[in-house]
């Protein structure tokens, strides 16, 4: 009898009682732990891992964003520098131009003033000379009159003579 053969070694003959209670215990564990232990624990572990992954990805993204921002900043700075250089250059040019213009204008004015002054001087000089001439003439006449008064009786003849002489005297 095979049943007797199994009975020879009771170690390999499963007891129905233990099989039954073990099935009950295992199913109970599977259901209770599955619902109240494994599910929340595995979910928490997954969530944490997901969180770490997300955080790392975010950090990487931030890093690349920061790098992009930095390069953008540098570009902006370079542009600003360039603009500044251009502005300075332009300002200098304008300033130079203004100075040059001012100089030119000043020179023109100066020239005009000098020319005016020259004309005025010449006029004054001529007027003065004429005046001197006239005064010298009058003096000469007076002196000559006094001299000639004694020598010349004819006044008219004397004047003609003096004028002739005076014509001959050219100051210029």
């Amino acid at each position: 009898m095979s049943f007797m053969l199994l009975e020879i070694n009771p170690l390999v003959l499963p007891d129905i009682g233990l099989v039954f209670w073990n099935t009950v215990a295992f199913l109970l564990l599977l259901v209770v732990l599955g619902k109240f232990a494994w599910k929340p624990i595995l979910k928490a572990i997954n969530d944490r891992e997901q969180g770490i992954e997300d955080a790392l990805a975010k950090a990487d993204k931030m890093k690349s964003e920061l790098a992009a921002m930095q390069s953008e900043n540098e570009a902006l700075l370079a542009k600003a520098r360039e603009e500044r250089a251009t502005l300075i250059k332009e300002a200098k040019e304008t300033a130079d131009k203004m100075v040059a213009e001012a100089k030119e204008k000043a020179k023109a004015q100066y020239d005009a003033i000098v020319a005016d002054a020259q004309v005025a001087i010449n006029q004054q000089k001529n007027a003065a000379l004429t005046d001197v001439k006239n005064q010298v003439g009058a003096l000469v006449i007076e002196v000559a009159e006094k001299v000639l008064h004694k020598e010349l009786s004819n006044k008219a003849a004397q004047e003609t003579y003096i004028n002739e002489l005076a014509e001959g005297v050219k100051l210029n």
């Binding site: 007891d15 009682g17 039954f20 215990a25």
Partner: peptide, 15 residues
């Protein structure tokens, strides 16, 4: 035999 034997009781302890 559905007895609560030593093994069954020990199994319950482990559970």
């Amino acid at each position: 035999d559905f007895s609560i034997t030593k093994n069954v009781a020990s199994l319950f302890v482990s559970v």
